[in-house]
Amino acid sequence: MNANYLAAIREVLVQGLPVTLEVSIAAILIAIGGGVVLGVLRTLHNRALDALIIAYVELLRGIPLLVLMFFVFFGLPQLGFHFAEVPSAIIALGLWGAANGAEIVRGAILSISAGQAQAGAALGLSWFQVMVTVILPQAVRRMIPPFMSLFVATVESSSLAALIGVKDIVEIVRLRVENDPALWIPLLLSILLIYFFINYPVSIASQKLEKRLA
């Protein structure tokens, strides 16, 4: 069993881990980018735009990520959009992450007092200038801890990709135990530790940062 375990863990680390990280990092980048765009757009207070963005956010936070992933991978082909496993996972995770990101950005911007924007406007700066030079630089600091938490959530949620066939660390474990069920416990514990060692430092750093910024 030992030899089997070692071979399996090697595959997990060498082949699975990069996939897990690739999916997670791609998704969080989409989440940050999309979140910033959507969050900033909310500050325009345009009724129609707000309605659209709110609908998007509520939709994506109201359905399980798994259902979204299944829809993208299994359902979209019927409507003519074909995405392979990894892109499907990244798209679903990214869309979900952007919805959360939008709320994070919006919260951070709101927490910067209105007086700041008023002062900027009184000086004659345009909305865009106020946003870029006054509000966002201050808001960015407040966004970092929640985005770090979102990263942790994204890494955890990337495990769902295994259910559409992406060969991340979870899927590789599942494939390996098909041949040798005795490997369930050691391999599951191993990947639990892998996830823990990726996420825990980020979690702690996020908590410390939050205390410092408060």
Partner: peptide, 11 residues
């Protein structure tokens, strides 16, 4: 908290 629920379900 720092580990995926899916893996726990498998576990």
């Amino acid at each position: 908290r720092n580990t995926p629920p899916l893996v726990w379900i498998y576990f």
